[in-house]
Design a protein around this nucleic acid. Sequence first.
DNA 1: GTGAAAGCGCTAACAA
DNA 2: TTGTTAGCGCTTTCAC
Lengths: 342, 342
Amino acid sequence: MSRPTVHDIAQTAGVSLATVDRVLNKRPGVRAKTISRVNDAIEKLGYVRDVAAANLARQRTYDFTCFLPDAPTEFLSELRAAVAESAAMSAMERMRIAVSTYPADDTHALADMIGGLAKAPPDGLALMAPETPRVRDAVRRVMGCGTSVVPMVADLPTAGCGHFVGINNVAAGRTAATLLGRFLPVAPASVLVIAGSMSARDHAERRLGFDQVMAERFAHLHVLPTLECHDRSDLVTKRLTDLLAKHPDVCGIYSAGAGNQGLVQALNASGSGDRVTVIAHELTDCTRAALTDGTIDAVIAQNPGHIVRSALRVLKADVDGMETIPSQERIRTEIFLKENLP
Amino acid sequence: MSRPTVHDIAQTAGVSLATVDRVLNKRPGVRAKTISRVNDAIEKLGYVRDVAAANLARQRTYDFTCFLPDAPTEFLSELRAAVAESAAMSAMERMRIAVSTYPADDTHALADMIGGLAKAPPDGLALMAPETPRVRDAVRRVMGCGTSVVPMVADLPTAGCGHFVGINNVAAGRTAATLLGRFLPVAPASVLVIAGSMSARDHAERRLGFDQVMAERFAHLHVLPTLECHDRSDLVTKRLTDLLAKHPDVCGIYSAGAGNQGLVQALNASGSGDRVTVIAHELTDCTRAALTDGTIDAVIAQNPGHIVRSALRVLKADVDGMETIPSQERIRTEIFLKENLP
DNA sequence: GTGAAAGCGCTAACAA
DNA sequence: TTGTTAGCGCTTTCAC
């Protein structure tokens, strides 16, 4: 037998299509008794709604907006590419995705842009942004307009929005520390953490996790103060070169932020590539090449394609009032060696 | 403006809906001149077909079959669970998934079952099976009936079927070797590989990759002959216990197959848990627990949920004559430590 | 060769 | 409070 339709329900319940539709969509104007008659029929027939047909009839188009910072890191351009790819693919699934870029260093501008959405609130907003009070308030406001909000990459825990699409950065830091500690010989030495800025929540969390594991399992390794390089390759090169010269006992580096181009350069120039074991973040052209030639030993990554597709699925499910498969929406903290590069 | 529809094409080309449809679906009975008029209109308007509406009108249901071996490994039950979950989810997307289990040790029976599909060929077949000549021929036959075939987990390279959904097992073996080699101190010692059976293609490939890297980078480690335990926990326990007693210099184990329950047991019983670094395959309750308590040091895994969903997407795209996103369909060789467990 | 018209499963006016 | 009816974008008889 084929799947039961609204007609079957209407017949079984002895009501009209319109009434069935009202019950299905929880619209008012139906007597409680009728509602339960319809629900009984639904139950009895094992009806499941054909979402595609519903969307067709409804002429439903999912109107989503995506905010990304304009920072010039490779990871961000991959994320942008992933959004573009998803936008193209999902045009066929009746979703329209508007991408907006905000100045990475100007969260006031970002908050204003989010606020501006209130004029024509989209169905959903996928947002990669640091959590400042103003951003948080702007997010709350647009949520008040009925927009579903999903934070990507960086969580917005206090804004009260939906499912966070990204990795646990404390766990990422712990993973990096474990790899570094186990790759290095068991002997006293120094290790270095390079981060964008310790005021960025994600980098701070990575450092936290890293320190935890270093203290727990690798007490013979001395962790130097974090080198803050604001995700800028030039600064990484400069400061790292200085530091390597000053600390010849550095045998491990955890690059928790961006600017790995600069890291590779400093390592090659100073000839310390062999002496130093390096763990970096995100799989980009640069880290991939460095992994292949051995400059970098392992990469911790989150997959931009997964992140974007997951954010979109979560948003769509939210709008449709549907459930998601939790395991599918959990972004993995991936580990790449030269050998398992995709 | 909203998306152009068949009506717009019909109007622009000055023909009727039926003719547009004939052209769109490449059905015969249209003059060449008319065809090009319609195609011009399609081009001009930038028409893209609404697959959902098409499927609705066509009453299209995707009829897929999935064959899995009945071997009692945890990975397989996860795979089965993933298929069940996907089947439930995708019922809403008009796909019906029939799951069949075949006796793992009887490829003749499997070949017969595949052959039996010819009577009522499904639209697609997702298949996890070893590649024997009879299986290969049966697959070719059902492909001749118009069924799209996608090999899962184990490739079927000579059957000439679609995109393989699974990992590169040579790379997996190389990854395991790299982790083991780097985790162990640089000192002469022995390492052991446990596999199901070396006649299973995937296990042989893992061993191959493992040996490559051991020879290339870790010549100080001596790789003992493979312990074949047919994925059976009891055999693993027995043979491993014997071997550990005989070879006190074993400091690393690569468990390339199933039966990790037996491995954990042997390690705990013999008290060699601390002495031995262990890399195992697949994330299961058993390996997860062992990772957490430190018995296993790293797990190489392929995600059953991803595999099943990817196989289904590939099958559907194939039937629809659509493209897939290659990066989304590439199954990753994942590495899990205690710290990045999902 | 081509076209008109009746659906597919569902929703949304508009009546009643 | 409930029912009738006309679509959504596409496919598919069955005439012409």
